[in-house]
Design a protein around this nucleic acid. Structure first.
Lengths: 200, 200
DNA sequence: CGGCGTTTTGAGAGAGCTCAACATCGGTGG
DNA sequence: CCACCGATGTTGAGCTCTCTCAAAACGCCG
């Protein structure tokens, strides 16, 4: 899913790095599209401003994510992008990408594959949010993200980050994890969780 | 986002219709990929079976949705697809699609654009689920889905369907909508909701 | 008219959120 | 080497909000 996986080096070299201060605007809805951005560090808020002037948050893009994919195929951006912390992004010009796709179907396919995978992942995460119980939601996450052995899950970041991804408060996550460990359902190592017994 | 928007008629004609009875398996993880499916009617569950034999739901695909997009670029399916009601699907063979993409960059771009739009929509819906208050979640939905005038929202289906999409029980949705109408924040017509005042 | 699904309202309980305090760990500088 | 500091991790208690279960009104269609 990393950008290096599908972007040919020729295009990657054409990327333009840009540093943003917290609060700085990357683009506004209606601006002419320049291309695809990749977030290198920091957080970029994608938002729309509604009639009453309130900001409606659409997405928060973090390191390694791309943003404005859809804008690649549109003449203007459809939302605002604002740095919510100091951030660094890289711009891949629209023309270079589209030309690359037209010339090399393999590149196009790789891009499609990445988008398709993102769609799957997002749908899975959305499905997860339909689970109300904290415990079951964690179970779902562990089952979906289990490694090759089907029992060990590597945690990508801190538990706080995980709580955010799961849509739980970090307190609820800590508590439930502790309960599950006490019940012998999981075993916690540093950076990993191992599923032990089947429950129910 | 409908399939007709990006699929050339030549390929669309090559689609193979298939009827499924409730409970019938469309494909299993590990099967060789045949192509991209479009759901015409009914509901298809995409799920994975975890180590302890429990089914982990990844997504429920309804009418007009496509499924197994990522499998287009993979030799085997990575999850099970099972009809959870009587259903009809249409299969677009992998080879035909990929050949079309290689031959006509425009078709490939249209497909990418559709995927990119789906990614955006899904990210927006995921962001919405981070809002805990029912009222604020509804506000977010209304703001995001407001029509051209920025104040009128057309409801796609029943309120029950909307409740499902919002991740609320239908009771909670009804109640909150009634409260918002009583407070003069919205006005309800049949099939539409109109935003009235700005609130706090 | 009768049946089915949607819409609506009621009451109660439970689960996670909020606020709060504290422990722990890793890095930083005196 | 140790004190300090910030962020992460952990536990406690209370409360609000939504979910759950229940029942009834409404609208649509045969």
């Amino acid at each position: 899913m990393a950008i290096a996986d599908w972007l040919p080096t020729s295009v990657r070299a054409a990327g333009i790095k840009r540093a943003l201060a917290a609060g700085q605007v990357l683009f506004r809805a209606g601006n002419r599209t320049e291309g695809l951005y990749q977030v290198l560090s920091g957080k970029i808020h994608l938002a729309r401003v509604d009639r009453s002037g309130r900001e409606v948050l659409l997405h928060i893009a973090g390191p390694d994510e791309t943003l404005a994919e859809a804008s690649l195929f549109s003449p203007t951006y459809h939302c605002d992008a604002i740095a919510r912390s100091d951030a660094v992004v890289r711009l891949y010009p629209q023309a270079a990408l589209l030309a690359e796709f037209a010339r090399h179907p393999k590149a196009a396919q790789a891009f499609m594959a990445m988008l398709a995978r993102q769609v799957m992942d997002l749908r899975t995460r959305l499905e997860q949010r339909n689970i109300h119980s904290a415990r079951d939601r964690i179970r779902h996450y562990l089952a979906v993200n289990a490694g090759a052995d089907g029992r060990t899950v590597a945690l990508p970041g801190t538990l706080k980050d995980l709580a955010l991804e799961l849509g739980l408060t970090h307190e609820a996550l800590y508590r439930t994890l502790a309960d599950m460990a006490a019940d012998g359902e999981i075993e916690r190592g540093r950076g990993t969780i191992r599923l032990l017994a089947r429950s129910i």
